[in-house]
């Protein structure tokens, strides 16, 4: 029965991976440390769960009585999202071009890349706070915030997309004696435009989400309505606003899928 004899030369294919075991052990140690460091106890958690019960009880049924307020906040959120997305997309088109290292000299691309990185680093809420302090409460601060956020996302990815293009077509167009603008329009843009649309649609979606949030720090839109409802403990109105936001975002995802299919 030679075929069935088990030789000890085979190593166990399912042997323990010490690296990943170590990582999990570290995670365990970290858990114990952080629970101690932050003073999290089960008591506090279970106490909170009682409150959660009460809160949910007060949130239902959602109260749509003040739908006019809701609608005006929603309209402002939409306006912020649209204006910020369109301006952000147009600006990113240029900023992305200027930040591409294979088209631009270093003295243009390096400062531009730095600027884009700066736009990306801070969370939109922090940028919103700074804008609220400098241009006052209202939709303008929200618009400026989301423009900055859009530049940080679209321009960065667009610049990277341009850096990956094939230079053969650029050379071919140049060889015909085309000027700089023609080179960009007829050799660079056809290669990257569909990806640019993809980034833009994604950012439109994410601007829609963020436009309902910047209001929390006073930058206009539905977030402001939500925050004041929270502060007045109108939890049934809060529930109504949250349902509206989720519906809006699902609608946004549906629409952006359609746009993506059109531009595929």
């Amino acid at each position: 029965m030679a075929g069935l004899s088990t030789s000890k030369e085979y190593e166990n294919p399912f042997k323990r991976n010490w690296v990943s075991t170590g990582i999990w052990a570290l995670v365990g140690v970290y858990l114990v440390y952080s629970f101690n460091a932050m003073g999290l106890t089960w008591d506090r958690f279970s106490q909170g769960l009682g409150h959660a019960d009460k809160l949910l009880g007060r949130m239902f049924p959602p109260n749509f009585d003040r739908w006019e307020l809701l609608l005006s906040g929603l309209a402002e959120s939409l306006e912020i999202a649209v204006i910020a997305s369109v301006s952000g997309i147009v600006l990113s088109l240029f900023f992305g071009l200027f930040a591409a290292r294979n088209l631009m000299p270093n003295w243009v691309s390096v400062p531009m890349r730095g600027f884009i990185a700066l736009c990306r680093t801070f969370h939109p809420v922090i940028i919103a706070i700074l804008f609220v302090k400098s241009v006052g409460f209202g939709a303008l601060a929200g618009i400026l915030t989301l423009i900055v956020a859009s530049i940080g996302f679209i321009a960065k990815l667009f610049a990277e997309a341009i850096e990956e293009i094939s230079l053969k077509q650029v050379e071919a167009i140049r060889a015909t004696g085309a000027g700089f603008v023609s080179v960009i329009l007829f050799s660079v843009m056809p290669q990257v435009f569909s990806r640019f649309i993809g980034f833009s649609v994604y950012q439109l979606d994410s601007n829609l989400r963020n436009s309902t949030m910047v209001g929390i720090v006073g930058a206009g839109g539905l977030g402001g309505t939500l925050f004041s409802a929270f502060q007045r403990f109108d939890y049934d109105f809060v529930a109504a606003i949250l349902i509206t936001i989720i519906a809006l975002i699902m609608l946004g995802e549906f629409l952006s899928n359609i746009v993506r299919n059109i531009f595929r």
Partner: peptide
């Protein structure tokens, strides 16, 4: 994904009170 983290935070602050949790 639809509810922003700040909104989640508002909800949990009203449940657990202000703080890390």
């Amino acid at each position: 994904r639809s509810v922003n983290s700040l909104v989640w935070a508002l909800l949990f602050v009203s449940i657990f009170g202000p703080g890390v949790i």
